[in-house]
């Protein structure tokens, strides 16, 4: 065989392997979805019949409803706070001398690399001393520190792709600087800011470990409630919760992608 033919066969094998790996990545997530619609009690294929009984169960049990409410409160609080602070910080960093900027952005990226258990335990002790363990404030504070790096990265990449021409044109037409900022710069940055907010929400919505240490019985979030359930016994209700979380994550992902596409278009325009 010619070496090229060997290589072609190799290339085909690599492609087949890649498809198999993509299956490995996606199928385990897809496999739980039909099971959450089962009419039976067991988690088996073929599914004995489809029903919404487990979703009904999920949406009528007070502990699950409370956990959804808590996740929304903490997630939205985290998204708002981290977006506000992260956006301001990104604007500030872009105008700092490079060394100082690198130092401060290093500090703000820190929460990304600290193991999450350490964040949980450390915050537990310190927040207990502040008296905010078992409160929304404590959870939102911890989640916000974890979310700021993501907002920062999203807004900084939006800033990096921002052409100064529009602002220059607005200024040339006589707009005072604050108006240039509010009417031109902020709208151009908006896709980056909004995807930062989505990242902020996602960070909070994903967290089990920090919530384990900081939430009292009244602040149990959806992932935390699900974690408790998974440790005991995986019921179809848990899989209904999991499916809802998957759908939610997909919505967040699509929104982020749409925002990225929009900012590419705005840049190309």
């Amino acid at each position: 065989m010619r070496p090229d033919a060997v290589f072609d066969a190799g290339a085909l094998a690599v492609r087949v392997f890649a498809v198999a790996v993509l299956g490995f990545l996606v199928l385990p997530i897809l496999v739980i979805v039909p099971l959450s619609f089962t009419a039976g009690v067991e988690l088996v294929y073929p599914v004995p019949g489809f029903s919404l009984r487990w979703y009904d169960d999920f949406l009528t049990r007070p502990e699950w409803l409370l956990s959804i409410e808590n996740s929304l409160i903490v997630g939205i609080g985290t998204a708002i706070l981290s977006t506000a602070l992260g956006t301001l910080a990104a604007l500030g960093l872009s105008r700092l001398p490079p060394r100082l900027g690198a130092l401060l952005s290093g500090l703000m990226i820190l929460p990304m690399v600290v193991p999450v258990v350490i964040i949980g335990v450390a915050c537990f002790f310190f927040y207990a001393w502040l008296g905010i363990v078992g409160s929304y404030a404590g959870l939102i504070l911890a989640h916000t520190t974890m979310a700021i790096p993501f907002v920062l990265i999203a807004v900084r990449s939006a800033l990096a792709g921002l052409s100064p021409d529009y602002a220059r044109a607005a200024a040339g037409l006589g707009a005072p600087p604050h108006r240039v900022f509010v009417r031109v710069t902020v709208p151009l940055l908006m896709p980056g800011i909004l995807s930062g907010a989505l990242f902020g929400f996602a960070v909070s919505f994903d967290d089990v470990v920090v919530a384990m240490f900081l939430s009292g019985p009244q602040q149990i979030t959806l992932p935390r409630q699900m974690f408790n359930g998974v440790r005991e016994n995986i019921s179809p209700t848990i899989l209904a919760a999991a499916t809802i979380m998957v759908v939610f994550s997909l919505l967040l992902m699509s929104a982020t992608n749409a925002l990225a596409a929009r900012s590419r278009r705005m840049r190309a325009a």
């Binding site: 301001l88 910080a89 500030g92 872009s94 105008r95 915050c123 520190t145």
Partner: peptide, 18 residues
């Protein structure tokens, strides 16, 4: 002024995590 913009985030991370 630029430092002032980063300050809220820095303070929050100092109190909340550092």
């Amino acid at each position: 002024g630029a430092l002032g913009l980063t300050l809220p985030a820095i303070l929050l991370i100092l109190v909340g995590l550092v």
